[in-house]
């Protein structure tokens, strides 16, 4: 018999870990500030989580399939800038109204899709390392948005901004649009990861792309799809983001890529690929946002230490998820 002991406790630890951390944070927050569990604050936390969250769901698929995308933060800034430019340019002919908003949204989706496709093309067709490709495109998009804004800020026309704002601030039954969209993306993502052929193929490719190839899986196409979907989701996130501030600059979306990747990893998806879970990513995003939120609501620890605490949590999450290597 070569059956090795099953790492049962470890497996459940990786499931319980993130949930337990989230619960601890919520309890801490509730004890420190009575407003923490108020509807306003919860709504605020969820809306803020939505941008990174929507992107992180896409990132979960990319990482599960053994890839990585460092460009999403810059891509979001570039897409936002492009969207604002297009809408401002169309304003004289279309006027303030639904059509121009739809045009803006279409621009964001198409730009995200093309940007994701470009990453995917370089990675799957030309066979360049994902890290290198997206490190490059990260620089390119960041530089492009700076150039488009001429070093300053691209602002949406004031009238347009007022008209568009409900997409961030409005909602149905008191639930804001970003939260609704985030929820939909998460549910679809979770089902796709768990029970679709695509999700299973992502895990197979991330686990061992040779095995996938020899099993007649269309490795290139699946990989490409993960980057395209991520690009598209960056477009969706940008649609939610632009009405919030109505502007884009070179500092828009800075470090979003790292927050998204961190959320994915905290949630229990393996950085080297082969296994991913979307619900875990959601918990990861919530943990990261809550840390900032709690530091802001209490004066216990300086909010400037936000990054340090997030960093600790990321490292801790990976340590807890580490599997014991088999005896060999």
């Amino acid at each position: 018999m070569t059956v090795k002991p099953q790492a049962r406790p470890k497996v459940s630890m990786s499931v319980i870990g993130p949930i337990a951390a989230l619960i601890v944070l919520i309890v801490m927050g509730a004890l420190m500030n009575p407003n923490f569990l108020g509807v306003d604050n919860i709504s605020n936390v969820l809306s803020r989580s939505a941008f990174i969250g929507i992107i992180a769901v896409g990132m979960t698929f990319v990482i599960t399939a053994g890839g990585l995308d460092l460009s999403v933060g810059s891509m979001a800034a570039f897409v936002a800038g492009l969207m604002i430019l297009v809408m401002n340019a169309a304003l004289p002919s279309l006027g303030v109204g639904v059509p121009i908003i739809l045009l803006g949204m279409a621009t964001a989706l198409v730009a995200g899709l093309v940007a994701g496709w470009l990453n995917g093309f370089l990675i799957t067709v030309l066979g360049i390392e994902a890290f290198i490709v997206t490190l490059g495109s990260m620089g390119i998009y960041r530089s492009l948005v700076t150039w488009l804004a001429d070093g300053g800020t691209l602002s949406l026309d004031f009238g347009l901004r007022t008209f568009y704002q409900p997409v961030f601030y409005g909602g149905i039954l008191g639930v804001s649009w970003p939260i609704i969209v985030f929820a939909v993306v998460v549910i679809v993502g979770e089902i796709a990861m768990r029970s679709s052929v695509f999700g299973r193929h992502c895990a197979a490719i991330g686990s061992n792309d040779q095995v996938a190839k020899y099993s007649s899986v269309r490795v290139g196409r699946v990989r490409m799809a993960t980057y395209v979907i991520l690009g598209l989701l960056v477009g969706v996130a940008t649609i939610m983001y632009v009405p919030r501030l109505g502007s884009a600059s070179s500092s828009t979306g800075v470090l979003w890529e790292l927050e998204a990747i961190a959320a994915v990893i905290i949630g229990g998806t393996l950085l080297k690929g082969g296994f991913g879970r979307v619900w875990g990513t959601v918990i990861g995003v919530l943990i990261l946002t809550l840390i900032g939120n709690i530091l802001n609501l209490t004066d216990f620890v300086s909010p400037y230490l936000n990054g340090a605490i997030q960093g600790l949590i990321i490292v801790l999450a990976v340590v807890l998820q580490r599997e014991s290597k088999p005896g060999v």
Partner: peptide, 18 residues
């Protein structure tokens, strides 16, 4: 081991992959 089966996965995922 390196081209046939996903060693980290269970029997079910491996069986039906193709």
């Amino acid at each position: 081991k390196t081209r046939g089966l996903l060693l980290q996965k269970g029997m079910r995922e491996n069986l039906t992959l193709q």
